[in-house]
Design a protein around this nucleic acid. Structure first.
Length: 699
DNA sequence: CTTAGGG
DNA sequence: CCCTAAG
């Protein structure tokens, strides 16, 4: 069976055929064929292709051109904004938000037309939604600690006369002149100078510049308030926002963590995107899924939202993360099976906080539209949307034009020897990580979130005659949402930068086991843990801390691709999944309990009689009282015994098993493999226990 | 829940 | 040991 993981690498086609696992009857052991080959097709290309296709499909007519043209470009590079550092042989490209070399990825304009009111968005035909979603998700962004700025511009036009899509402009990287990144400001969590960028074309520009007092920000509030940051990109409309929100708020768990067991990492050993733990396969798959999925799946609900606070928690989280990753690794299992831990990367978004910030920000800018249109620039947690509302008539349709999405800052470290293709893949993976989480739209009116999706626009106070100018949209991770009880005053959730920390792991980093230990490397990384893991603990890290810690201290030799975490801590939070404290412990890997010779003997004896397909029976027969030995354990043990028996004694490890037993193992193994003990009603004659196992072999 | 296999 | 797809 070809490993799925590998399969996913095959970017050779638009979609990869699903190769179902073969019936186990034929799943015979066979040398695992590994596809050594890595796809050379860049993720972005894929993305582009998909985007293009979507565009064509859903784009009725016009406007597709502009967008299309840009979609394919992987990323833009702005010379003076690119910083290249030589570091331990690793070439680091730092993409600083606006000031980054990679300004952004562009997504084709998304146009949503709403018949009656905004709330209808959710009621859009599935197709529409999908396309929207898909397109939107095509560009995901990562939040980076230092500076993440997703700019989403929405051009909402109320134009009854136009059904068509708005021609839109796609923002080019070069257009991105808005933000100013001041390195000097970067050493403080809250230091940021954000200058919202300009408007492109006739769009309204959102300018939300804020200079925060670093000290004030981080010291006093412990909250990194950054208007920009957060992953947002989804136009995903939640049918029942309220509910979801509620749930999410209470249960979100996020984890961006890496794990030392990265067997499903990137193809390139030395290049990894740790934080998001994107498995190439995953990324692709995920992307594909998102792009092609007909129906948006409901975001998984998370039972709890826990923050890491202790190494213990971290550990457990680790474990979870691993599980999650694995689970997600190769497929989108039915939601039912996915339980709550599907996302290896989850984000918590503090709506409240954002709202707050929003309220302070709403800026109005008249676009000069003759038809009394009001355009506002809304910025929320890094999402800035330019909304243009044309109020012409009450029944007019509302059109949303999303000008572009910007990919947040990413920090990537790759060996100089890495190929461009791998670089592309890494970027894609990072993007995908964000996308995979799903996004949804939030509506903010006058600084407050409009949570009731069932209200009409009018009821919500969104009417032509009212504050359209204070209407804003935000893209939020769909599964996110902050903790339920959270109130604006709770303080924002913080993005756990563990991922980065984790990424710092390397064989050389002894302390990788606990994110905390790594955290300690950098004082700037602050963790605030008040309660136990079960409660709302939060990890607060300075925007930059993770990054620095990683590249400077923790990761001397790390070549991992390290997406920088979102600066805006408030918007994102990575939380561990374990919903139950107990779970943590339970999830711990069982302590190793080597089989004693006596146990081996018992096992061998049982297998001799029962064969190798009735482990449960074996268990009952020989290990009835050994609670710590499950039939799976026995099966595994047998497996290893067989292996052990077939290798040279010198290669064996652990407590030596008497050769005699091993001989019996081999004999039984041979015997049963020929006698298909598996099911047959009539079990084959039990292997005779004799003193001369050798004979059995010949049987 | 069991099995069978890959990790 | 873990994880999971298949039964």
């Amino acid at each position: 069976m070809v490993s799925k993981k590998r399969q996913d690498y095959g970017f050779s086609g638009y979609r990869i055929p699903v190769i179902p696992r073969a019936p186990r009857s034929i799943r015979r052991r066979s040398p695992q064929k590994k596809l050594v080959e890595d796809s050379t097709i860049s993720a972005f290309e894929l993305l582009a292709a998909v985007a293009g296709k979507l565009l064509q499909e859903s784009e009725s007519s016009t406007s597709s051109n502009a967008a299309e043209g840009k979609v394919h470009s992987g990323f833009y590079r702005d010379g003076n904004k690119t910083m290249i550092h030589e570091n331990d042989k690793a070439l680091k490209l730092r993409y600083l938000d606006q000031g980054s070399c990679v300004e952004s990825a562009f997504v084709p304009e998304i146009s949503i037309q709403n018949r009656n009111n905004l709330s209808n968005v959710k009621g859009l035909p599935q197709a529409e939604n999908d396309s929207l979603l898909e397109r939107t998700s095509a560009l995901a962004s990562c939040n980076l600690p230092t500076k993440v700025d997703y700019d989403m511009k929405l051009d909402m036009c109320k134009d009854r006369s136009s059904d068509g899509v708005f021609p839109c402009k796609v923002e080019g990287g070069s257009d991105d002149v808005g933000d100013i990144y001041d390195p000097k400001m970067d050493d403080g969590p809250g230091k940021r100078l954000v200058n919202k960028r300009e408007q492109v074309g006739d769009l309204t520009m959102a300018n939300t510049s804020r200079v925060k007092d670093p000290i004030e920000e981080c010291v006093n509030t412990n909250v990194l308030v950054n208007s920009e940051s957060s992953v947002q990109l989804s136009l995903y409309s939640d049918p029942n926002p309220g509910v979801l929100l509620q749930k999410h708020r209470n249960d979100v768990k996020l984890g961006i963590r890496d794990d030392d067991e990265n067997s499903f990492g990137c193809n390139k050993p030395s290049t990894k995107i740790r934080p998001f733990r994107l498995q190439p396969c995953n990324g692709y798959r995920r992307t594909r899924k998102m792009l092609t999925s007909k129906y948006r799946k409901v975001a998984p609900k998370f039972k709890d939202r826990h923050f890491f606070n202790s190494s213990e928690g971290m550990k457990s989280f680790h474990r979870y993360r691993k599980n999650i990753c694995k689970r997600e690794r190769c497929h989108w299992a039915p939601i039912k099976k996915r339980k709550l831990f599907d996302h290896s990367f989850e984000v918590a978004y503090d709506q409240e906080a954002s709202s707050e910030s929003v309220s302070n920000l709403p800026e109005k800018e008249m676009t000069g539209d003759k038809s009394s249109s009001a355009s506002i620039l809304h910025k929320e947690n890094g999402v800035s949307a330019s909304v243009k509302a044309h109020k012409k008539s009450t029944d007019s349709k509302v059109k949303f034009n999303i000008k572009s999405f910007r990919v947040p800052e990413l920090q990537i470290e790759v060996p100089e020897t890495a190929t461009v293709g791998s670089l592309k893949r890494m970027v894609m993976e990072a993007v995908t990580a964000i996308l995979r989480s799903g996004l949804q739209v939030g509506v903010v009116l006058q600084g407050k979130k409009v949570r009731d999706d069932n209200r009409t626009l009018r009821q919500a106070g969104i009417s032509q005659s009212s504050n359209l100018d204070t209407l804003g949209f935000a893209l939020e991770p769909s599964f996110t949402h902050v903790s339920g009880p959270r109130t604006p005053k709770d303080g924002p959730l913080v993005l756990q930068c563990d991922a980065d920390l984790q990424s710092s792991r390397s064989p050389a980093s002894p302390n990788y086991d606990s994110g905390i230990s790594n955290a300690s490397l950098d004082p700037r990384l602050v963790m605030k843990l008040d309660n136990d893991i079960g409660s709302n603990r939060e990890l607060i890290t300075s925007p930059k801390a993770p990054t620095d810690a990683l590249k400077d201290e923790a990761l001397p030799d790390s070549k991992a691709l390290v997406p920088v975490l979102p600066t805006n801590m408030e918007a994102l939070a990575v939380v561990p999944f374990n919903s139950k404290r107990k779970h943590n412990e339970l999830s711990q890997r069982r302590t190793r309990r080597p089989f004693s010779v006596a146990e081996v003997e018992a096992l061998v004896e049982a297998v001799e009689k029962l064969g190798t397909g009735r482990w449960r029976n074996v268990k009952m027969r020989a290990f009835e009282d050994a609670d710590h030995r499950t039939y799976v354990d026995l099966k595994d043990k047998w497996k290893t015994l067989v292996h052990t028996a077939s290798i040279a004694a010198q290669q064996r490890r652990g407590e030596p098993v008497p050769q005699e037993l091993l001989n019996r193992v081999l004999a039984a193994h041979t015997y049963w493999s020929q006698h298909q003990p598996k099911h047959g009603k009539h079990q084959v004659e039990p292997l005779q226990i004799t003193d001369s196992p050798v004979e059995m072999v010949g049987a």
